[in-house]
């Protein structure tokens, strides 16, 4: 009852802004608006209020001085960042690693979800689903520990197997390019199962009559997937793609930090680890903030652009 009421008001509101109408709609659905206040407060406290700290990027802030007391330095820190070779290296690594994740890691859950959807035996489907998203709940520290046990060049289980079978050991985690591949595959292994949940939910939402009609028309399994399942989850795919594009500049810290080692630093050092080391550990909070700001701005622009194109292509976008 409330739901329908609110949506009716929403439609009205779109027609034009009118104070009287707005007030009366607030009055009508007072409890709903009150409920909205809670997440709003949360958002304000934890997303907007900390933005005050962004001014650190333009200040020479070194504790014990407070942020307000620290002198302004303008764009000095940005100049320093954009002149340092190290920054371009970590930027390149971030883009390469995240780009690879996007290319290989983004389709993986879609494929997996479709495969799971086609499984007929219920218990098998359930069990494999659970097994698939298990790794998502492991912390990266544990995953890295396991992977080093398995993949070390000489003492790793996999390489012991390979050498005993007469092959030569593969430097999964110690050679730069191999490391990138391993990093990528381990990432897919960890998160693909979890990613299927949203797609499976979207697939459930597809009208089953469509499938029945397709069967009547003589469509095989692949045809059904191609013409019904995939178009059915297209909006979900697009929305997730846009969100993921926004993340291409950002990077998780724990994954590269735990999987990286001294031998592959050339490829493993990403923005997050750079900020941790040269910003936080070196007490250069302005550098950390400036890089963070840069990351957010680029991410935001990427989201806007992809949203724009997705709207152009008739997919609606996410806002």
């Amino acid at each position: 009852m409330y739901y329908s009421n609110a949506s009716k008001n929403n439609i009205k509101a779109k027609e034009g802004f009118n104070i009287g109408k707005t007030l009366s709609s607030i009055k009508n659905d007072f409890s709903l608006y009150l409920l909205l206040v809670v997440p709003m407060i949360f958002l304000f406290l934890f997303s907007y209020k900390p933005m005050y700290g962004l001014i650190i990027a333009f200040k020479d802030y070194v504790p014990p001085m407070t942020i307000a007391e620290s002198p302004w330095i303008g764009f000095d820190i940005f100049k320093e960042i954009f002149q340092s070779n190290q920054f371009y290296k970590v930027l390149r690594n971030t883009l390469i690693l995240n780009g690879l994740d996007l290319i290989t890691g983004f389709p993986a859950p879609i494929i997996l979800a479709i495969l799971l959807n086609e499984v007929r035996v219920k218990w098998f489907k359930k069990t494999s689903q659970t097994l698939l998203y298990m790794p998502y709940f492991l912390s990266w520290v544990i995953i890295a520990g396991i992977m080093y046990q398995l993949m070390s060049p000489e003492t790793g289980l996999i390489n012991i197997l390979i050498t005993n079978l007469g092959g030569t050991a593969v430097p999964f985690l110690t050679e730069k390019l191999m490391w990138v591949v391993s990093y990528n595959l381990i990432g897919i292994w960890q998160s693909a199962g979890w990613g299927t949940i949203i797609y499976l939910a979207a697939i459930t939402g597809i009208n089953s009559e469509l499938y029945e009609a397709a069967v009547v028309d003589g469509a095989g399994r692949l045809r059904k997937i191609w013409h019904i399942t995939l178009p059915g989850i297209r909006p979900t795919i697009i929305a997730l793609l846009i969100i993921n594009l926004g993340r291409i500049m950002g990077s998780s810290f724990d994954r590269p930090f735990t999987l990286g080692n001294a031998m592959v630093m050339d490829n493993a050092d990403v923005i997050a680890t750079y900020v941790y080391r040269e910003g936080l550990q070196s007490v250069r909070y302005n550098l950390a903030t400036a890089v963070g700001l840069f990351q957010s701005v680029v991410g935001f622009v990427l989201v806007l652009i992809s949203n724009y194109f997705s709207k152009k292509a008739g997919e609606g976008g996410i806002f």
Partner: peptide, 21 residues
Amino acid sequence: TTKYVKALDAKWEESLAKVIM
């Protein structure tokens, strides 16, 4: 030193790995 010590520490590890190996 304060400014660069952590950056250099990471570079030091990297260099040791590269040079010794």
